[in-house]
Structure formats: C-alpha cells, structure tokens
Nucleic acid binder design. Structure first.
Length: 449
RNA sequence: GUGGGUGUAGCUCAGCUGGUAGAGCAUCUGGUUGUGGUCCAGAGGGUCGAGGGUUCAAGUCCCUUCACUCACCCCA
C-alpha cells in the first residue's frame, strides 16, 4: 500500500488563510439569509437512490452510491425488506422536498428555510466544477399553491449577498421556462427540451452553429431563425415583453410566462435595480424546474459558469394527496470561491483567528502567560501563548508568519504590546487593552498580484 | 462516459542525438548571545508517478497502468 499522498481531483481543500476567506463568505451568506427570516435546517447526506433518481435529468449517472464495505449483496439491494440503496445527495432541493413531505404536519407553511451543506456529483472535474462542493440554498415551499411573489424575493436575497462580496459585478439572469415552451409550441416545435438545450449553447458556440444544430434537429430554417430571435432578447427592464410580442407568436403558455417574468422583473427594478436581467436564452438548471429559472454570471468571467441558480418547481414534493410547490435559489459557494480565490486573489487577512500571541520569556513563565491569555480571551480577544520560550525574534516570527498582528510581552516595566506590522511597542493593561475592531478577527483581502 | 495534454525536491520548473539529478522560491541553521521582516553564508530535502521492456547504460526510447489537467457532455 502506497503512502504517497496526492490531491483527489474534484475534492478541493483550502489552506487556512483561504479557508478563512471561505468562512467570511459563508458568514455573509448566513447572516443575510437570517436577516430575511429563513430558518436553518440540515438534512442527512444520503437519500434512498430511488428518491434521487429522475429528479435531476442525467443525475443518475452522477450519484455516488454509499454502501458498507462489508455489505453483502442482499444488504445492498433496494426495496422490499426495508433496506435501500443509498446515494449521496447531488443538491439540497431534492432532500428538502423530501423533508417537507416527511414533516409536513410539524412545519408551518409557507416554510422559508436555508441550508448550507456539501453536495456530491460524480462528474469530471475542471475549473469551477467539483465532485464535492458546498451549496447555500434558500427555498420557500407551501402546500397546494405558492404565491408568485416569492419568485421575485429569492433572487433579491442573493443580490444582497453578492453586493457584499468583492466581485467585479454580477448579473442574475432570469427567465421563465413557459416563455420558450409556449413560443416553441406556438411556432410548431414539439421538442421543447431538446430545442432549449441547443439554444442554451448560444453563448458558447454562436448563432450560426445554433441555427444549424436546430435545423439538424428537425426545425425549419424559419423556425430556427425565430428561436434565435427569441434567445437574443435580453433586457434589464420590461422591454423584453414588447420585443417578444413583436415576433408575432401567440400561445397561452407564452403569455403566462411573460406575465410571470414581468412580475419578477418589476420587483427587481424597484428594490435592486440592475441586479436582475431578463434573459430569454437561460434554460439551465435541473429538470424539475417548471417556471421561473435563475442563473448568475460574474461580470468579466461569463464563461466560468453560473455561480448561483435555481427556480420554481411545482411538482417536486408530493405525498400523493398534497403537492408542495416551491421556489428556491442556490449559491454555488465552492464555485464562487473557486473564482474569487485563484482568479481575483481573495484570501484571508491572516491564516489563523489569533489576534494576540503572548510571548514566553522562559518556560517557567508559561503559567503567567496563560493567565494573561485567559484575561484577554475573556474580553473576546482571540489569543494564544507562544509554543516555546525561543528567542523573542523567533516568537515574533511565529506571529508574523501567521499574520497574527500583536505580540504581548511581560517586561520588568509592566506589560507591553507590539504591533508587529508597524513595529510599535507600547505599554498595555491586560484588563483594558483592545485592538482596533478590524484587527480583532481575520477578514478578507485581495492578494497583491 | 468521449477526446487531447502533463507527471522530476514542499511549490514553480530546467535537464541537449540515452552516459552517475539541477535552479529559483519555500524550510531549517548560523552571521545577530532574548525583539521578526532586508542582506550574506551554509544545510536538509528525490525509489525522476507506478510496473514492465529495449540497451553496456533509461529522467530521456517503447508498452502497460495510475494520477493530475483541459475540452466535450452536463452543471453550482
């Protein structure tokens, strides 16, 4: 057995400073979710495979199965005798829908929840695509019917979060699947899903290749042209409605979709102007979305992929008698960090939460140093004692390497604290000294590039 | 799952038509005998991804395999 260690592709791990940046982002997300009144839940990592299957398109190929190493065949089989094949969840929406059905009698509906957890997909990893990654979800689920105003609310929460991050800009693109669906039916194209999939590649392969792909898939030249005309519509205001109408297609589903998207955009224009873009080419997301869909690009990194997406699902959760429609949006925290850290140089302001290192003149002084540390900690100042009574130069270097801003010295003239960035060392009282607020806890910074 | 690329020190990489393994950065020590960062000197660190083959001789050529990586598919 080899002792050689190597990274596992698609299972990213951060060094401490970058992890601090990730935690900072997670803190912003959590604080903002709670500010909007979403309650936290955590669901188990596994679901019966049969529950996962068929909920996410090709997801079945991506599901990681979980079995005991020592399990025999009968134990791993699914079904009858109370045993089930288990799989790791590939998103947080499917488990949440299960959770709502399971606890419907104990939940107050409509239920607003957030959930920040790892998910797993057995894909080929590459930049921004992982096999294990963190998602931060909010969803609202109700019984029977779900008020449409929630479709406008969830992306605005995300916009509020993204505004707090050091991003060059972002666009939450919104569409309603009923628009292309009604439009395609209105011009006589029956294969809605297939057409969507081709049109969705517009950014990547350009209009000419989309046109030929559509024709190859059975559309006439004229139908292909009209699909492209629809897909090219994009607006930050409500003008997309007139532009769709100008294409002269009418279908009741199309009308429904236009009304729904208008309602979302109207709220966005009022409360977060510029954050939402109606973009009629957006189709992506898992199969279970039935109306509004969201996808988010970072300005200048459009090819990187969506860092946040979601939508409305009307039929995902059902116990057979009651259906629980919902709408939700999911921030791809790992993907977002995969952009922020390597591409934009985001990292932690230090590699440890420690604010003060208490220097140790001699090992015999450890007890006194620990008392000093205890006093500082009691006032909320993250503190550690030097690992050994090395020369002070080494102890200072210990702090410097980790980005710890202050070193505390007990001297014959009384306690002194040194700001190792400026080199300034001054007398300090362990019972009252406080660092500036911005030094108390690590924050984020951009690496000089 | 399909197709391409790359595997040499902790990291980034050099290593010619085969001839005894190298640099920079990082780490540690000393210069600096209890106040870091700069500078100078030195040291440690490698089954050259793994296995097989060709050869007097393989990091270098051939085969197999694994890993990583990029694109496709799909997606956060």
């Amino acid at each position: 057995m080899s002792t050689k260690v190597a990274p596992l592709s698609g299972f990213p791990e951060f060094l401490p400073a970058d992890r601090i940046a990730e935690q900072h982002v997670l803190d912003i997300i959590r604080r903002t979710f709670e500010l909007h009144g979403f309650a936290s839940i955590e669901t188990r990592a596994v679901e019966p495979v049969e529950r996962l299957l068929g909920k996410g398109g090709d997801a079945d190929k991506e599901i990681y199965a979980v079995t005991r190493l020592a399990a025999d065949r009968s134990e791993a089989s699914s079904g009858q005798d109370g045993t089930h094949e288990l799989g790791l969840h590939f998103d947080l929406t499917v488990p949440f829908a299960r959770y709502v059905v399971e606890n419907a009698g104990r939940l107050q509906l409509p239920f607003r929840r957030y959930q920040i957890q790892k998910v797993w997909r057995g894909e080929r990893p590459q930049e921004g695509r992982y096999r294990e990654f963190t998602q931060a979800d909010i969803d609202v689920i109700d019984a029977g019917t779900l008020a449409p105003h929630y479709e406008a609310e969830v992306p605005l929460v995300v916009a509020e979060i993204f505004r707090q991050l050091p991003l060059p800009g972002f666009r939450i693109q919104v569409n309603n699947r009923k628009i292309p669906e009604g439009f395609y039916r209105g011009i006589g194209l029956a294969d809605v899903a297939g057409t969507l999939r081709i049109v969705d590649k517009l950014d990547k392969i350009g209009p000419d290749r989309v046109r030929s792909a559509l024709v190859e898939a059975g559309a006439s030249a004229e139908q292909a042209a009209r699909c492209l005309a629809l897909a090219e519509i994009r607006s930050e205001d409500l003008s997309f409605v007139d532009r769709v109408r100008a294409l002269g297609v009418s279908h009741p589903t199309l009308t429904e979709g236009l009304q729904a998207l208008s309602a979302v955009m109207r709220v966005g224009l009022d409360l977060a102007p510029g954050a939402l873009v109606a973009d009629l080419r957006v189709a992506r997301g898992l199969d279970y979305y039935t109306g509004t869909v969201y996808e988010t690009q970072i300005v200048g990194h459009e090819g990187y992929g969506s860092v946040c997406s979601g939508g409305r699902y009307d039929a995902l959760a059902s116990d057979g008698r009651t259906t629980y429609p919902g709408v939700g949006i999911s921030i791809g925290v790992s993907r977002l960090l995969g952009l922020l850290v390597p591409r934009l140089g985001l990292t932690g302001s230090r590699s440890t939460p420690t604010c003060v290192l208490v220097a140790l003149p001699a090992e015999a002084d450890r007890a006194a140093a620990m008392r000093t540390a205890t006093t500082l900690r009691a006032r909320g100042i993250p503190t550690e004692v030097a690992p050994s009574a090395d020369k002070f130069g080494k102890q200072i270097r210990y702090a410097d390497r980790r980005g710890i801003p202050y070193v505390w010295f007990a001297t014959a003239e009384g306690d002194q604290v040194k700001d190792i960035r400026s080199g300034e060392q001054t007398g300090a009282d362990v019972a009252s000294w406080l660092p500036p607020q911005e030094d108390l806890h690590p924050g984020i910074r951009l690496r000089p590039r």
